[in-house]
Nucleic acid binder design. Structure first.
Lengths: 113, 113
DNA sequence: GCGATCGTCAACCGATCGGTTGAATATGCG
DNA sequence: CGCATATTCAACCGATCGGTTGACGATCGC
């Protein structure tokens, strides 16, 4: 039951893969460009991307000789919902909720520098 | 940066450990009782509990000769916030937010049976 | 067509993972 | 005290992980 969660959480457990996701948050990228800032081989990054794609967190589309990587944030939904099942035990956690609101609605607090 | 996320996500990547967390959602449990429904050795469960404790997802307190395991849902906070950073790509997910509010503030909807 | 670029494949490596078993360590009970 | 219960420790196992290297297949520009 819920084999997706296995692969999604496992994919998120690696800092390199989380950083790749963060990069893809800004824009779609080619494999070579994804690999550029990392101090490891292109093949290693290619494997990481394969794992992210296997978890559904990204999709890859080959256009010409370059393969474009696109973030698929909806794949985080099931994991997020699963985690929310533990929210009932938290005292209130309104601060996290406010941060969430700020990000979602773009409502910046007054004291922002 | 953010070594917690490594261990938290890795801990969540195993279905046995997720099931343990689900069980602890209902009540604190002794190690032996946690192990009972699983078809594996007590030592294996003890290791799983150690990993969960290492990630801060549970705490263990020895009272007498039995060690009680207690869920620590706040440890999910950092991971949850990290994932919310990708929420800007989702439509809005207001339904999850309303469910969150209902649970947090005890504001039950009218049509509750 | 040719050379350079993009990306994967395959084989290999050491480390870690998830599990086992058996012995060891506390602690409680009668 | 002596035995049962609760839990961990230590060693081991095969499988998987994260990484490397080198060869390979496509595809582009000239």
């Amino acid at each position: 039951m819920a084999p997706h969660l296995d692969t999604v959480f496992a994919a998120l457990a690696d800092p390199t893969r989380r950083e790749i996701l963060r990069m893809l948050l800004e824009d779609d990228m080619a494999v070579t460009d994804v690999a550029e800032p990392f101090a490891m081989s292109l093949a290693a990054i290619s494997k990481h991307l394969g794992i992210l794609a296997g978890a559904g967190l990204i999709t890859q589309e080959k256009r010409g000789r370059v393969k474009w990587c696109k973030l698929e944030p909806d794949a985080l939904k099931a994991a997020s919902v699963w985690m929310q099942g533990f929210g009932q035990f938290e005292p209130v956690n309104l601060d996290a909720f406010e941060a969430f609101l700020e990000r979602e609605l773009g409502a910046e607090p007054f004291d922002t520098p």
